[in-house]
């Protein structure tokens, strides 16, 4: 253990300059007019965009659930493999993360296009062409593809700690597969589930690249909206800050929700 607390000072300074200060600036902009007067109009001005907020939460939520459902069994089997195989498989899971994020998403664009590879193959069987690009489904797919490893890793980390003998003990006491899952595996991997949900949901709900590249104009998310306020033709720092602030509150709410699930007080369960 490091005893010398002064070693943490560089980070404290970093935090003050690059995290706390910008946050204060965002708060300032969110509650002032362009002339610097206090106002709540920025926040109330978000009301027309409720649908965009709802869509963001919905798509990010769907992507998170799909990631969880897909990653859970994968992580379980990964955690039951022999140690040397586990390392190879983990590398494979992380492999896509080594490629540039934009590149990966571009790749999906060409795959999903009207005359992209998938539609060509489908056409070969007399199906389609299907409208895949520029749909909500494509946005969810992009989120799942990009953030799935962030779900697998924490789940795997939680599950390697569960000894085989605990699973056997559950079976020994009369639990079949389903009840071993619900009474032992899920409660014991809850911290991993909470971390995984946070790590997928937070970037998904605030993304703007995935929605712009795969969602077309019809699937605008909060991220896109905020970007428009700062860089696009709407150009309104004050409304943009208010939106950022609201997004932050939403994210914090969701995180505190999953965190209470993660470290549920085990002694109070009775």
């Amino acid at each position: 253990m490091l005893k010398n607390k002064s070693l943490a000072y560089p980070y404290l300074v970093w935090m003050a300059i690059f995290i706390a200060a910008p946050l204060l600036i965002v708060v300032y902009f969110a509650f002032t007019t362009a002339e610097g007067k206090f106002t709540l109009n920025n926040l109330t001005g978000i009301a027309p965009y409720t649908a965009v907020f709802a869509r963001s939460l919905l798509l990010a939520g769907a992507a998170t659930i799909i990631c969880l459902v897909m990653a859970y069994p994968v992580s379980y089997f990964l955690s039951r493999m022999r140690a040397n195989k586990q390392h190879i498989m983990l590398m494979l899971v992380m492999l896509p993360m080594w490629m540039n994020f934009l590149l990966r998403t571009y790749a999906w664009m060409t795959l999903l296009e009207k005359n992209g590879i998938i539609n060509k193959i489908l056409g070969f069987f007399g199906i389609g062409p299907l409208q895949m690009i520029n749909t909500a489904g494509a946005v969810i797919l992009g989120m799942v593809y990009n953030y799935l490893p962030y779900m697998i890793l924490p789940l795997y980390t939680a599950m390697v700690k569960i000894d085989d003998s605990l699973i056997e003990a559950a079976q020994d006491l009369g639990a079949g597969t389903w009840r071993t899952l619900t009474r032992v595996l899920i409660p014991m991997s809850a911290p991993g589930i909470a971390t995984g949900i946070t790590m997928v949901f937070v970037p998904s709900v605030s993304t703007f690249i995935i929605s712009r590249m795969l969602g077309g104009g019809g699937n605008m998310l909060i991220g896109d909206l905020i970007e428009l306020q700062f860089l696009g033709n709407s150009l309104n720092y004050n409304v943009g800050s208010a939106m950022s602030l609201l997004l932050m509150v939403v994210v914090l709410l969701c995180m505190s929700l999953t965190n209470t699930m993660g470290d549920e007080d085990v002694e109070g369960v009775i």
């Binding site: 000894d163 003998s165 605990l166 056997e168 003990a169 559950a170 032992v184 409660p187 014991m188 085990v266 002694e267 369960v269 009775i270």
Partner: peptide, 8 residues
């Protein structure tokens, strides 16, 4: 022993 650590 294989006791369940999440239960009392």
């Amino acid at each position: 022993y294989a006791l369940f650590p999440h239960l009392n």
